[in-house]
Nucleic acid binder design. Structure first.
Length: 129
DNA sequence: ATTCTAACA
DNA sequence: TGTTAGTA
């Protein structure tokens, strides 16, 4: 009983994170190469702390939402220095844009889900399921 | 066994 | 990003 589930640990090896989030170590190194992660180094080995883990969670969420690594990178900057620059405003614009797209897709999905349920219902009655 | 960099797909 | 090679 030694592997305290990540929630309590402080240090993580690249393998720990890749296993926990189901991504390759290559992907993690890739995110670092792109500047999204900055793990410490002990010798030449990467040592991730909770901060890095938290950022990785945000990166993966951003990916699921369809953001590019570039956008996610900018987004991550907000968590560090709350610089209210032109860059930040431009980012807010991108976020609004994505937000609109997601809202539309959400509405479309709900409409489609409703229609499919109706079709299923009618089909079921016809078959007498 | 594990991780690292670099290079090519 | 996956994979492979050659290390430390």
């Amino acid at each position: 009983m030694n592997r305290p589930e990540s929630e309590n640990r402080d240090l993580f090896a690249i393998a720990d994170l890749s296993h926990e989030f189901g991504i390759s170590t290559r992907a993690i190194r890739f995110y670092e190469a792109k500047g999204l992660l900055n793990p410490e180094r002990v010798g030449g080995t990467r040592v991730f702390r909770r901060r890095d883990r938290a950022r990785l969670i945000l990166i993966l969420r951003g990916k699921r939402l369809g953001f590019s690594l570039r956008d996610i990178s900018d987004y991550l900057s907000l968590y560090d220095a709350q610089s209210q620059t032109a860059q930040t405003k431009l980012l807010v614009a991108k976020v609004d844009e994505r937000l609109s797209l997601l809202e539309r897709q959400k509405a479309d999905l709900e409409t489609t889900i409703g229609e499919l349920r109706e079709i299923k219902k009618l089909a079921g009655e016809r078959v007498g399921a």
